[in-house]
Nucleic acid binder design. Structure first.
Lengths: 205, 205
DNA sequence: TTGATTATCTACTGATGAGTAACTTGCATT
DNA sequence: AATGCAAGTTACTCATCAGTAGATAATCAA
């Protein structure tokens, strides 16, 4: 019994449609924020890119602040997921850390991850800013814990987990600013390079 | 012959006064840009902080774009100087590199250096943007050369200088985002920590 | 003394862009 | 058929803020 195609949509269909449109708005917005910067991008610009009008965006999202908050939340959400998965990985603490870091680096080269780094939090309204910071804190804590565990099992050199976390995060965030998605370096390769270098250091062994 | 103080100013005095005022404007501006963000800071805000009015700022600087350009140029200028000095240092290539990196990190925790990282270039008008990028390129090249020389003399493990430069720069730029000047970590100490960690890696040796 | 220059102000203009009002059209449910 | 909700539109409002006009007062040079 193959279902024949019908022009009439089920409620689920319509809901999915709506979600897809909302999604398209966010994707267009995040791309433009990353290209030109949040403040240089008006919602009229975003609408024009999608071939719609600004009020349509307001039909799917409350305001510009919410558009940005949703974008960065998605980026941060991906990283939080990655942290949870890293916990499940086998191997030493250092292995789990490296696994997470590779994912972390890759997400930062992705649309939503890039937006987290490039736009940051100061563009957000103070309420959204708090949400943003709460998510960031979770990630920071996860990273510090992974580091702490690796030190505890001897697979990492003892050091201050907080400072090491900042050192690593900086190196892995930076591609959001310079990496060209269409350039010669594939995100996965670059992530591998960065993590290996952070692990082994630049001095000869 | 101690010079008695006079209410009449020499032309040099007046010129110096003017420069000092211009300077004060830039210092106030860069502080506020770093605190609240460039787009969240109006020139009225900056003027208010100095107890003057906006047109006075325009008397010393052409427009807001120029204010920002001057701020970031100062930051970048400091780094360019540091690169030149690093060239004069004794020791191996790796020693000179480390010397430069420590300075680099510290400048990024300073007002003008922080502004370079935090505000970036997309806020600038396209003409200023070109100047900004030209300066950045010089720094990037200097860093790559220092790395290349260190590899050449065997004091660094062979690698792609460009990628290593980005790795290092990321880690050393990041404090501009999180480091608190009034916090527990002195810039010099933090710089030392970062560079040592990048050099030796986080894995035990 | 007079005229030019510098430093500063108050009070404006003008553009940009976020957000809204209010209409239209069409589908869907009763 | 009637009603209501969903998805869009055009055409506005309104706030903010960069930048300017033009006045005023002081200082300096002639």
């Amino acid at each position: 019994m193959t279902p024949i195609s019908s022009p009439f949509q089920t409620p689920e269909q319509r809901q999915a449609d709506r979600a897809a449109k909302r999604d398209a708005v966010l994707r267009a917005a995040v791309r433009m924020f990353n290209e030109k910067g949040f403040h240089q991008t008006s919602l009229d610009d975003v609408a024009a890119r999608l071939g719609i009008s600004k009020p349509t965006i307001y039909h799917y999202l409350g305001n510009k602040d919410q558009v940005l908050l949703e974008c960065v939340s998605r980026g941060l959400g991906q990283i939080i997921e990655a942290a949870a998965e890293a916990r499940q990985e086998a191997g030493t603490g250092a292995d789990r850390l490296a696994w997470f870091l590779r994912r972390y680096a890759q997400i930062n080269m992705d649309d939503f991850g890039r937006c987290v780094i490039r736009t940051g939090d100061e563009a957000l309204a103070s309420e959204s800013q708090q949400q943003f910071r709460a998510l960031k804190r979770r990630i920071d804590n996860a990273l510090r814990e992974l580091i702490g565990e690796a030190i505890a099992d001897g697979s990492l050199a003892p050091t201050d987990p907080k400072l090491l976390a900042f050192t690593i995060a900086g190196a892995l965030n930076w591609p959001a600013r310079w990496h060209d998605p269409d350039g010669e370096h594939a995100p996965a390769d670059l992530a591998e390079y960065l993590v290996t270098n952070l692990a082994r250091g630049y001095l000869p062994r």
